[in-house]
Design a protein around this nucleic acid. Structure first.
Lengths: 144, 144
DNA sequence: TTTAAATAGGACAAAATTATCCTATTAATT
DNA sequence: AATTAATAGGATAATTTTGTCCTATTTAAA
């Protein structure tokens, strides 16, 4: 569904949100440990998210990543996915046709439109705050 | 959503079904032209589909690919996707966790389950025959 | 002011996916 | 029997994605 980069991005952002709610900034090292991802690759993903103002990064000792508390329920998964994978999740023909729309559809166009819409809707309606609910109680997890 | 191989596989199977309904066998060359796919790569995909008994292949002069008429409305997209991409479309955590299920879910497990179920349902309920309807009239297309 | 700990970013490497090429095999036709 | 047209399959190449490594920069703290 998503690229590895995007999966790491969502998990990393969620962990950062979780710790930011507690008021603490987290290092790349800690993030990678807690979400079980390759450190250097995760760094690239976080750079991308930082450039897109989805997470804040602070350089230097005691630096790390954080998200302003006020933004945690404003940032939606759709923004993370877009920042990393672009719009190919939303656009692009399910059968790979270069051009495919309601006027000139592939045989499954309408059916894919529906599923894509559901996915898009889910991503647009799920905030990082939503993602953190359940993590403290161990009901959900970011690694396993 | 799907791999390139899978996209070619669905388009190729659909074209073969279309021609098989007319009672004619089609060559790899013709298929690749009609679905706008790389010839040799499409050959690999068709080998895979042939091994999985989704299409019949006939070697030698006047050979080619076909699907028994009686099977055209029996073969579902889900079989093609499974033959090429395996079950990773259906299984596998949306966030890339190695283990993720209703007992030990990731934060979006339930939401993904729903979307995956819709996709799976669509693939399981769409036959190659369904795919061909609209192709003759030019309402839908396999290349563009 | 030096040191240490952190992110930024460029260069590179490994792995997976996509794509091509060549030879072998098969079968109809001449 | 030879030729021709087709798929099968192995080897290889190109591209993309994933992942690593090293140096530069920044900042807090000693």
């Amino acid at each position: 569904m998503f690229s590895k980069a995007c999966e790491y991005g969502i998990r990393a952002s969620t962990y950062i949100a979780l710790k930011s709610l507690e008021g603490t900034r987290v290092s790349l090292k800690e993030i990678a440990e807690k979400i079980d991802s390759p450190v250097a690759f995760t760094a690239k993903v976080l750079q991308q998210l930082s450039k897109n103002h989805i997470v804040d990064s602070v350089k230097g000792a005691a630096g790390g990543f954080q998200i302003a508390k006020a933004n945690i329920d404003q940032v939606k998964l759709s923004q993370i996915v877009y920042a990393i994978d672009g719009n190919k999740v939303y656009e692009g023909c399910g059968l790979g046709l270069k051009k495919c729309n309601s006027n000139e559809p592939c045989p499954v166009h309408d059916k894919f439109v529906q599923i894509r819409a559901d996915l898009k809707n889910m991503l647009e309606s799920t905030s990082l705050y939503d993602m953190t609910v359940g993590l403290e109680e161990g009901l959900t997890a970011l690694k396993r």
